[in-house]
């Protein structure tokens, strides 16, 4: 799978797990970003085919990063990574234009299937 994925999550742990799953799924072109600033930088460096975006980041609360990403590039494919209890924000994110969401901790197969689906859209 040559598609490029950008993983934006400030938790080392969760990132590592996600990274591992992506690797096992055959996605080798994965970049990581820890803050919103870093994410935006990496997006402008090279447009990712898919962004996995954690809901809570240290330098941006709420969905302002998602908003910015979609304003700059309305076709960008974004999948939200959420934790338990963030239902309301997720609905908002989908309204805003995120394609899908996945709750952490996620099931590996479902996660990979969803990524494949979104990339194929």
């Amino acid at each position: 799978m040559e598609e490029s994925i950008l993983l934006v999550d400030d938790a080392i742990f969760a990132r590592k797990l996600t990274r591992k799953t992506l690797d096992e799924g055959g996605y080798k072109n994965v970049r990581e970003a820890v803050t919103a600033k870093e994410a935006l930088e990496k997006i402008s460096e090279e447009r990712p085919d898919l962004i996995l975006l954690d809901i809570t980041l240290p330098d941006r609360k709420d969905l302002s990063l998602l908003k910015e990403i979609l304003e700059n590039d309305p076709e960008m494919k974004v999948i939200m990574l959420s934790a338990v209890g963030q239902e309301l924000i997720i609905a908002d994110a989908i309204e805003m234009g995120a394609r899908e969401f996945v709750s952490k901790p996620f099931k590996k197969d479902e996660f990979l299937t969803m990524i494949r689906n979104v990339l194929d859209e």
């Binding site: 239902e87 997720i90 609905a91 989908i94 309204e95 394609r99 899908e100 709750s103 859209e121």
Partner: peptide, 17 residues
């Protein structure tokens, strides 16, 4: 599933596209 309505919303968006 959990968050059924949100999943339904996701589908709505896909169909809108």
């Amino acid at each position: 599933c959990q968050l059924l309505s949100v999943h339904a919303l996701v589908i709505q968006k896909k169909l809108l596209r």
